[in-house]
Amino acid sequence: MVTNDMVEIRWHGRGGQGAKMACMLLADVAGLEGKFVQGFPEYGPERMGAPITAYNRISEKRCTIHSNIYYPDYVVVVDESLLDSVDVTGGLKEDGAIIINTPYSPQEMRIRLPGWAGKVCTVDARRISEEILGSNFPNIPMLGAVVQVSGVLDTERFLADIEESFENKFASRPQLIQGNMATLKKSLEEVQIG
């Protein structure tokens, strides 16, 4: 766990995968727990499948900086195929970690991250989502993984608070709440830290 005053997280995903939504949920829940938060997307060309970036700052004091994040503590890769086209570990702090949505182990993924000697964490968010929700929504399991790896929030409290957040978000589709909660819990258990 990084013990700075401020934890900075950078999300890499593809348009339509919900990376932005997960980023916003993390900001909401961390804020609910009394932290100062920022959650914001960086928009390029808006289309399904295009690479997108989103950012979180979580701190004990209000952060006035409104630039993008260039030296994150954690990087979340919601789509493994981005490793071929985006410098996902760019600026990542040495004592931080990268968390990748993949069926492979941290040892297997390390080969694909030349120049990165820090922690590599993996979770098969696609499988978790497909098994529980019946379709591929990797964002919520990736949110669980980053909370587990970073320790930025207490996981028990996080689960209780996000359930409340889901109840607001999915007020018109309550059937989604239990499934998403299950993907979160599964991801918390399964994420491999290497």
């Binding site: 920022q38 914001f40 409104h66």
Partner: peptide, 12 residues
């Protein structure tokens, strides 16, 4: 207010 930087950023 600043487009995206403020309009689309969730903060306290």
């Amino acid at each position: 207010m600043d487009g995206f930087i403020t309009s689309h950023a969730v903060e306290n």
